[in-house]
Computed example of a mutant assay.
Amino acid sequence: MELQDRVAIVTGATSGIGEAIARRFMQEGAKVALVGHSDDQGRKVETELRRLGAGECFYVHADVSDSAQVRAAVAAVTQRWQRVDVLVNNAAVMKGVRLVDMDEADWDLTLSVNLKGPFLFAKYTLPAMPHGGAIVNISSVHAVATDVATSAYSASKGGLEALTRALALECYRMHIRVNALRVGAVDTGMLWNNPRIMSGKEKVDPRDVAQPVEIAEAALFLASQRSRFVSGAVLTIDGGRLPILGSHAP
């Protein structure tokens, strides 16, 4: 097993991509802390994943943008398992609103969850991460080629990729790898609840939509020793979505 007895924290682990990553890590023998803010959903996912018969997991409540809650979550993991080998910063929000119509509170929320959250988890996890550890940040094609009504989300993901490169340099001497996945359309609530898609203004070809487990496979690669010589990289996994966004093709 590729992650046998490795300790992982996965944020936004109670649904979608995060849940798929947690599930895949556990299948490879990992001990996974499922970070989320909906306790009912968190306990449900915890129960489901414990039935896998491989790895371990427990649910940890945390608002990823709140420093005190992040510190408490990391402390709960290190108290239970003494270290953190892998951190996956997956939690994110997206507001499909044009910039001039966006409330400041929605802008602040997007940047706080999508960019401040990874900063906080990295800050408080790194002291507990031994040599050979890995950080995987979940970015988006919107970081480099976006569409209307995604300014806050795009800014946050562009910042996350810059953070990935900078943190990889800081972690070089610590022998901790920092990479990102730049994902395209994925079959999650974030995609289908996008107001532009719900209204029909934006069309998504089902052939361009990945399943969360496909993203999880790429996350496993970056978390495992198969990618031991990869750091500061952004791996695009989008089924060709990036050129479509870049050209604004229908």
Rank of each mutant, 00 (worst) to 15 (best):
residue 6 R to Q: 10
residue 7 V to F: 06
residue 21 I to C: 01
residue 22 A to E: 14
residue 28 E to N: 13
residue 29 G to Y: 06
residue 30 A to G: 09
residue 30 A to V: 08
residue 31 K to T: 07
residue 31 K to W: 11
residue 31 K to R: 14
residue 35 V to C: 00
residue 35 V to F: 01
residue 36 G to T: 02
residue 36 G to S: 05
residue 36 G to I: 03
residue 37 H to I: 07
residue 39 D to R: 09
residue 41 Q to T: 14
residue 43 R to M: 14
residue 43 R to F: 13
residue 45 V to W: 11
residue 48 E to D: 11
residue 49 L to C: 10
residue 51 R to M: 14
residue 51 R to G: 15
residue 54 A to K: 14
residue 56 E to S: 15
residue 59 Y to N: 03
residue 63 D to G: 05
residue 65 S to Q: 10
residue 68 A to K: 15
residue 69 Q to F: 00
residue 71 R to T: 11
residue 72 A to L: 02
residue 74 V to M: 00
residue 75 A to L: 05
residue 82 Q to R: 05
residue 90 N to E: 04
residue 93 V to W: 00
residue 99 L to N: 06
residue 103 D to V: 05
residue 103 D to T: 12
residue 105 A to E: 08
residue 106 D to L: 03
residue 107 W to G: 08
residue 108 D to N: 05
residue 108 D to F: 00
residue 113 V to P: 00
residue 115 L to G: 01
residue 115 L to M: 01
residue 117 G to D: 00
residue 119 F to G: 11
residue 121 F to T: 02
residue 121 F to L: 05
residue 124 Y to Q: 06
residue 124 Y to K: 03
residue 125 T to V: 07
residue 126 L to Q: 07
residue 126 L to R: 03
residue 126 L to I: 08
residue 128 A to M: 11
residue 128 A to S: 13
residue 129 M to E: 06
residue 131 H to Y: 13
residue 132 G to K: 06
residue 132 G to D: 06
residue 133 G to M: 13
residue 137 N to K: 04
residue 145 A to S: 15
residue 145 A to G: 09
residue 145 A to V: 12
residue 145 A to D: 13
residue 146 T to W: 06
residue 149 A to L: 12
residue 149 A to I: 10
residue 153 Y to M: 03
residue 153 Y to T: 05
residue 155 A to Y: 02
residue 155 A to H: 03
residue 158 G to V: 03
residue 161 E to P: 09
residue 162 A to N: 06
residue 162 A to G: 07
residue 164 T to W: 02
residue 164 T to G: 02
residue 165 R to G: 04
residue 166 A to S: 13
residue 166 A to Q: 10
residue 168 A to H: 00
residue 168 A to Y: 01
residue 168 A to S: 04
residue 170 E to Y: 01
residue 173 R to K: 12
residue 176 I to P: 02
residue 180 A to W: 02
residue 180 A to H: 04
residue 181 L to Q: 06
residue 182 R to C: 13
residue 182 R to G: 10
residue 183 V to R: 02
residue 184 G to S: 09
residue 184 G to D: 08
residue 184 G to C: 11
residue 186 V to I: 12
residue 187 D to F: 07
residue 188 T to F: 04
residue 189 G to D: 14
residue 197 I to F: 08
residue 198 M to I: 14
residue 203 K to S: 15
residue 203 K to L: 15
residue 211 Q to H: 08
residue 212 P to Y: 09
residue 215 I to P: 12
residue 215 I to N: 10
residue 220 L to V: 07
residue 220 L to K: 07
residue 223 A to F: 10
residue 223 A to T: 03
residue 227 S to H: 12
residue 228 R to Y: 15
residue 230 V to F: 14
residue 231 S to R: 08
residue 232 G to H: 12
residue 232 G to D: 13
residue 233 A to I: 12
residue 234 V to N: 10
residue 235 L to Q: 11
residue 239 G to F: 08
residue 239 G to S: 10
residue 241 R to E: 13
residue 248 H to D: 14
residue 250 P to F: 00
